[in-house]
Nucleic acid binder design. Sequence first.
DNA 1: GAGCACTGC
Length: 702
Amino acid sequence: MPQQFWKPGADKPRILEDEEGGVVFFAPSLSSASSSSSRFGYASIGSQRQRLPVYKYRTAILYLVETHATTIIVGETGSGKTTQIPQYLKEAGWADGGRVIACTQPRRLAVQSVASRVAEEMDVKLGEEVGYTIRFEDVTNPAATMIKFLTDGVLLREIMDDPLLTKYSVIMVDEAHERSISTDILLGLLKKIQRRRPELRLIISSATIEAKSMSDFFQTSKKHRGPEDHEFVPRKVPAVLSVEGRGFNVQIHYVVEPVSDYVRATVSTVLSIHDQEPAGDILVFLTGQDDIDAAIQLLAEEAHASRKISSGLIVLPLYSSLPRAEQDLVFSPTPRGKRKVVISTNIAETSLTLEGVVYVVDSGFSKQQFYNPISDIENLVVAPISKASARQRAGRAGRVRPGKCYRLYTEEYFVNEMSSVGIPEMQRSKLVSCVIQLKALGIDNILGFDWPASPPPEAMIRALEVLYSLGVLDDDAKLTSPVGFQAAEIPLDPMISKMILSSNQLGCSEEIITIAAILSIQSIWVSGKGVQKELDEAKLRFAAAEGDHVTFLNVYKGFLQSGKSSQWCHKNYMNYQAMKKVIEIREQLRRTALRLGIVLRSCEGDILAVRKAVTAGFFANASRLEAFSHNGMYKTIRGSQEVYIHPSSVLFRVNPKWVIYHSLVSTDRQYMRNVMTIDPSWLTEAAPHFFQNLRRPDPIAH
DNA sequence: GAGCACTGC
């Protein structure tokens, strides 16, 4: 039976139906919220909790959650919704009887910090009543945990073991407006689960007002509206509640004329803020390392010419591949009389929060990934941001006091041309991992799945083809046994999973999980700008004639022999943080492999076995050097695309006749990253059907 | 002889 926290007759909240009839709005009543608080256990803790904007909606939220299957909460940052709503639910009894309240986040750091904050507010030990689960860490106690924070990816994995998520009474999906692939899959699955579990309550929390489309998605068909008035059946029409934030006012400034060079415009805006505005740090949003370095260079030139600038400005770059020590500089307090200027990528939009920022300069652009399912190529391109991103960026100026945001685009452009929300990641990505996950969850009709945003059918079909060629799906597009089910268990790209599974028979699983771990992070080397020659020399110390994959094995061996030393990494131009991540992922893969019955075995230097295992996963990425090519041009076997070995590969300029690659990066040319030599006979050995079906006659003649 | 927005399992 649902909780009875609200007594009819006492402070009944007011409900406003909107014109379209579907959406319910709430007008908060301050007196009802404060008078009811003493009924619950934790009210004494805090005036601090009661000062949060979300507090006056406490009664309203609990009422809506009780009476509606889905409640959509639109709240700006600082409203307190993430930390408070799970506590309200617990206080109202939603965690009674061994049930659990879940709250998902897109990022691990957010999960950890929100969980420890809530544990502190409730005065309990983290990992008991309040716990969290992220990829490498499970800080929960199944016998005691009532409120559990987790990444949406982890909750997706939990659905594999418990398809109806039976232990949860309420699931709150936070930051749903970000529309990451895992959030979207999760929303689609939760809608299905809800049909089987009418008592399950969902809270979808989003920062943007695009609640209508989310509401439409969760609205089940109208013909079921009959029993809604019944006391204990939740309404199927989602409720929508809007909670204001607690940020300070941010004044928006637009340029009068469109700018042609946003790096130069950035620099002159920073200089005029420094010249005319009172103290306060500046946060600049540019697109990537190149832009950021260029802007810093220009500012350094200006500083050279002006004493005021050189003595007053501290200019710092910020992007994810920046070494940790340099990243940490942006968090150091600004000395008196100085002004900090942080020039950042999108990392400062959501992932990192800088205190003390009063001015934001927004270029209006960011780098975004796009996927073309026809050519099967992923592209990273500079693209205009959405209004939602622009608002998020501006909000970064109003955390400590009223601020200003300088947009390097016109108001006319913002109002009339900028799209309101970005394209969901689902619609601009490869879907191979997504499709295998849905298959593992028993979703047979992938093309008919009810998504919050449908991906292009071509991308789905492409993913199905890849999975079929890997032997993960059979002719009926069902997971094969055991390979398909095992591959779905491994939390990596299915091509890597297949490589790991094949290493079992080939007796080289120890080596292959090392390669898998290294391939699944961005790069193990330090960023090469300025130290290119030294980096190339360092690479040569580990280089293997067979290519990058075998080189990785040499690197990993060296790292272990050094005792996992950070100095050793530094000396060899290797990224220590990246190597620590490799160790972590490798350990997870080792445990997963053992669970799947893979025997962990080293091939003791039999590199042939390693290369065959890599080929078993990546045969579809084979390419051949064009005869008479003098510039290293290759053609892919599958699509006859013109490709080149990336200059970062140890095989650059070596140009062996047959190679397979891990991925393509596309700039002015298509470059193959992480390349390994093969014998073409291994291709037909690994995937006979795949190569027979190619249209090109006799593609792999010697 | 070139480039890596950001997450996540």
